[in-house]
Design a protein around this nucleic acid. Structure first.
Length: 272
DNA sequence: CAACCGCCCTGGGAGC
DNA sequence: TGCTCCCAGGGCGGTT
């Protein structure tokens, strides 16, 4: 499940293969993703020069003069660079074929991902982007911002940090991890958490995301071909997936609860 | 408007 | 061994 570190790793991995290259065509094999992939997208982007690969939250942005190809990996999506003669497999739903023989291939078994082509001038106004909160690794995401925004909010702190309108890129795994590291119980109300505690939480969110990106970076050199998986899974997780196991900090058995249909693991002793 | 819930989907693991 | 069931979850969009 791609979270921000995996999306960032993906961007860094594919960028050198894309930037400065010309798009030959796009191939849509499965248009039925999270939203229908626009038929004709292939024609619109043919011949375009790829100027930059970036991201906004978990949306990957491949910028060309003809428009911005915006991709979201959903739950199970991934991107890799292959050579054009390599036959697509079952869940390879989309190819961006480049002049010169390389292909950016989009794979997504669960089809929760999405692909759009958007005119550059209206990108910021796109409904999926315009209401997104700040990037967690920028200074815009800070203690004062969180504290002010959370006042009078009647949601749990876990929901608060997972809501992309408040801050982008914090998914279930890293929400669990950051709250553990900050010593905050996941079901505490966001509106009642002190400024001092937000200060700790903000730093832990930044810290855990940075570490994960660094680990993801270990496989960047081999991003083409089948070794395209970032090192994300090797990330040492302190609570996520460790229900029933002893807390690394105090030894107490970690507890799991459900919050908004998401598994939430925490230590009843270390998190208050 | 804020908060919540349903839904999109399929691989994989548990249970029988 | 093979079938069925259930779960994982990002995040939009509709409902309350």
């Amino acid at each position: 499940m791609p979270e921000l570190p995996e999306v960032e790793t993906t961007c860094r991995g594919i960028a050198p293969h894309l930037e400065g290259k010309i798009v030959e065509k796009a191939i849509i094999r499965q248009a039925k993703l999270r939203w229908p992939v626009t038929r004709g997208l292939g024609g619109e982007i043919s011949g375009a020069l790829i100027e930059k690969v970036g991201r906004r939250g978990k949306y990957i942005l491949i910028e060309t003069k003809s428009g911005v190809l915006m991709m979201h990996l959903g739950m199970s999506g991934s991107l890799k660079i292959v050579i054009s003669k390599q036959a697509p497999e079952k869940h390879d739903h989309f190819d961006l074929v480049l002049v010169g023989g390389k292909v950016l291939r989009f794979t997504d078994p669960r089809k929760f991902g999405s692909i759009f082509l958007i005119k550059k001038e209206v990108l910021d106004q796109h409904k999926l982007l315009k209401n997104l909160g700040p990037e967690p690794l920028t200074e815009d995401f800070n203690t004062g911002y969180c504290y002010q925004l959370s006042r009078n909010k009647k949601v749990t702190i876990k929901s608060f940090i997972m809501n992309g309108h408040n801050v982008v890129g914090v998914g279930n795994i890293y929400a669990n991890e950051a709250l553990f590291r900050a010593g905050i119980k996941p079901d505490r109300l966001a509106g009642k958490i002190s400024k001092a505690r937000y200060s700790v939480l903000v730093e832990e969110i930044k810290s855990v995301l940075k570490k994960a990106i660094q680990q993801g970076g270990t496989s960047l050199k081999d991003f083409t071909g089948s070794d395209g998986k970032p090192g994300y899974f090797k990330q040492q997780l302190l609570v996520y997936g460790r229900t029933g196991l002893p807390c690394y900090r105090c030894g107490k058995t970690l507890k799991e609860i459900r919050m908004a249909q998401r598994s939430t693991v925490y230590c009843t002793q270390c998190q208050k």
